[in-house]
């Protein structure tokens, strides 16, 4: 049985025109969506093509070569010796230290904002967090330089780098903590309080565990955000050709090495492999945080 919908030709004409428009619009939307993802695809493609030949066991487990070594390797057409171990350990040291500073401060601040939504101080803290988030990272590096390099470690140091990175991590952790806690039903809090549980225990043993995956998402995102930061580290950690675990000494980092390789014509080839590794780490953290965000629902 067929149904006569478009019995009048006027209506039919319009419907074809509208369907064409609809298709055109859909085409534009898909086209623009592809345009949006194309840079990332091209970047990863380029990094893999140009960087993969340097990636090897020694790339991860050896420190950076000096210019002379690189130059001889280049001249004889060999693979540049050495790796970026000093950068990997430096990034690890500084990011872990930054997280150790930013996580407790950020979570406590986030809990404060959640508990005192309407207080004036909370509004100030919230706005300040937003401002820090928008502050150029080199300015934060400058602040860490004045605070730590000039007055605490008396010289460029991993600690100064960690401090500048932790300031960058703070706003994300603060806001994600607040948003996560807001999503927890109020009755859960009341249920615990109705059993005579003291307030601080409700926060530590009910609210934070319940929102744990949300907090973790925020932390991982903030880590992936600062792991590639270069500018503040130039002013604070400076860089080093050796593996360094001492917080009071200059330290290298993966993004710092990219910058150093860029400035040395003999080592330019190492840019690609170093960037590839950095990109891989950042993507990994991003995907992990997405995974946790999903597991929450």
């Amino acid at each position: 049985m067929s149904m006569e919908i478009a019995s009048n030709s006027h209506y039919r004409d319009h419907s074809t025109a509208r369907m064409t428009k609809d298709k055109l619009f859909l085409g534009i939307v898909i086209g623009l969506a592809i345009l949006t993802i194309s840079p990332i695809v091209l970047i990863i493609y380029k990094l893999i093509v140009k960087g993969i030949k340097q990636i090897s066991f020694s790339f991860i487990f050896e420190t950076t070569p000096n210019t002379y070594e690189a130059m001889t390797a280049l001249a004889s057409g060999e693979r540049i010796p050495g790796g970026i171990l000093n950068g990997i350990t430096g990034t690890l040291l500084m990011v872990v230290m930054a997280a150790l500073i930013a996580i407790p401060v950020g979570i406590v601040t986030g809990v404060y904002l959640y508990e005192n939504q309407k207080k004036k101080l909370a509004a100030i803290v919230r706005n300040t967090a937003d401002i820090i988030q928008g502050t150029p990272s080199i300015v934060l590096g400058l602040i860490a330089y004045i605070w730590v390099v000039k007055h605490i470690t008396m010289g460029f140091s991993a600690l100064a780098g960690s401090v500048s990175l932790s300031i960058m991590m703070l706003p994300m952790i603060v806001r994600s903590t607040e948003e996560t806690l807001k999503m927890i039903p109020n009755t859960l809090k009341e249920a615990a309080l109705a059993m005579g549980v003291p307030y601080y225990k409700v926060i530590i043993r009910v609210l934070i565990p319940t929102g744990f995956s949300g907090l973790l998402t925020g932390i991982l995102l903030s880590v992936s955000r600062v792991i590639g930061e270069t500018a503040p580290l130039m002013l604070t950690a400076l860089g080093s050709t050796m593996v360094n675990w001492d917080l009071s000494k200059p330290t290298s980092a993966i993004p710092l090495l990219v910058w150093e390789f860029y400035n040395d014509p003999n080592m330019v080839d190492l840019i690609w492999s170093t960037s590839l590794l950095l990109m891989g780490i950042v993507l990994l953290f991003n995907l992990l945080s997405r995974q946790f965000a999903k597991s929450r629902k």
Binding site: T187, L193, V206, P209, F212
Partner: peptide
């Protein structure tokens, strides 16, 4: 209030077991 609440059990409109 903490001592008071331990003497009174409360059940809410929507079931709210602790999810963790």
């Amino acid at each position: 209030p903490i001592r008071v609440r331990r003497h009174m059990g409360m059940v809410f409109q929507r079931p709210n077991p602790f999810p963790t």
